[in-house]
Amino acid sequence: MKKLLLVLTMVALLLTSVTGCGNQNQTGNKSTGEQKQAEQVNTKYKPKNGQQIVIGFSQYTMGAPYFVEIVKAAQREAEANGCKFISVDGQDNINKQQADIEDLLSKNIDLLILNAKDPIGVVPAVKEAQAAGVPVIEVDSSIDPSAPVVTTIQSNNKENGKRVGLWLAEQFKGKNIKAALISGAQGNPVGQTRRDGVFAGVIAGQMKALGQEISDAKAEEYANDVEKQLVSKGKAKFDKANFEIVAQGWGSWAHEGGLKAMEDILVANPDINVLISENDSMALGALEAIKEAKQEGQVTIVAAADGQKEALALIKEGKYGATGMNNPTLIGKTAVQVGLKVLEGDKSFPKIYYTPPVAITKENVDQYYDPNAGF
């Protein structure tokens, strides 16, 4: 197998050679502090002589339509470029995902695309890929900085969350927000970034409505205070912005998980007026519980991320407030395109490549809704 020394150099790069990706939101990246400093090494890749490139994709779960669509989009793009594509499902188990990666490496893949189940637990497998000369691209989830990946391709979770939070604050205009929060998985950094982005947007928007404009940095500081309360108490209250989270439930990113978490929350908190979810799938499940409790129309529903077509259809009908755009088709396609550039010898990629942040609401949903979409 080829030997590869990867180069990660921070550049002000829009990846113009990657079609369909859109422009990277540099202003948003700087404001969130999520852009990590890259390291510099040298790329010395020599492509196989006329042999078909083999791309492996390790997805940690196929338990939600979003994850399925990332893999399908990557496969379409790989096959369109004449590559062989092999995907494996970690079944939401870190041990299986590690074994999956070892199996892919045994099949002499040229490129590994990875959506890590655990940001730290998968690091040894990534280092094994590096030792085998296989470049690794992380998608969707975040991974520990010690993992030698080329880049991480994901939506700008914090900026998406902020936009959703600002929209929510605009609906309430300083009035009391009594929210339930449904999160994906404990310890997941993407989930925390998403909800903290929403908190910052809500706080900034609410305080502006109350005549107290604050900076983005101050809004994030206050959001961190809310996060600390959640960690210690499982609920939080921020009186300066009339913003309260009465309970946090865990939905494992799935529809059924959101349904169960919301049922439990409503038993003790039937008077909530907002649901904040870290993705659409859990929010759609929670909506079923809200309907069962005969509270549909009384609870404003927002998701920090995804843009799932079922959620967009409800946004069009006015039954779902807003969601952040986290396009799995764009992420999967971009991962393959970037990977092929790496295999051609391209040495410069940002440590994190963000797709453009957008809050999808009734005002702009027609730009994004496709009833025939895979997700």
Rank of each mutant, 00 (worst) to 15 (best):
Y66W: 14
G50R: 01
Q51T: 06
T43Q: 14
A64W: 02
T43S: 15
Q59N: 15
R76I: 00
R76G: 09
Y45M: 06
I55W: 11
V68Q: 14
A73W: 06
Y60I: 02
F85T: 00
Y45K: 03
G50V: 02
I53C: 10
N49I: 02
Q59T: 01
F67V: 02
A74F: 05
C83V: 01
A74L: 04
A80P: 00
I86R: 06
I86W: 04
I70M: 15
N49D: 13
I70S: 12
Q52R: 11
N81M: 10
F67P: 00
A73R: 05
A78C: 04
F57G: 05
Y45R: 02
N81L: 10
Q51V: 09
I70V: 08
E79S: 05
E77L: 06
N81Q: 14
P47G: 10
E77Q: 14
I86F: 07
F85N: 03
Y45C: 03
A80D: 07
N49L: 11
P47F: 08
Y60A: 09
F57T: 01
V54E: 06
V68I: 13
E77H: 06
E69V: 05
G82D: 03
V71W: 05
Q75E: 15
K48W: 04
Q59E: 12
E69M: 13
F85K: 01
G50H: 02
V68E: 12
E77F: 08
K46W: 03
K46G: 09
K46P: 00
K48Y: 02
V68H: 07
V71F: 07
I70T: 08
K46R: 11
A64Q: 13
C83F: 03
K84F: 04
Y45D: 03
F57Y: 14
I86G: 09
Q52K: 15
I86D: 06
F57A: 08
V54C: 11
E69D: 15
K44Q: 12
A73F: 07
Y60D: 12
N81W: 05
P65L: 11
V68K: 14
I55K: 09
A73V: 04
K46Y: 10
C83T: 01
P65R: 06
A64P: 00
I55V: 12
G50F: 02
K44M: 07
N81P: 00
F57N: 09
M62I: 03
Q52H: 02
F57P: 01
A73Y: 05
I55F: 11
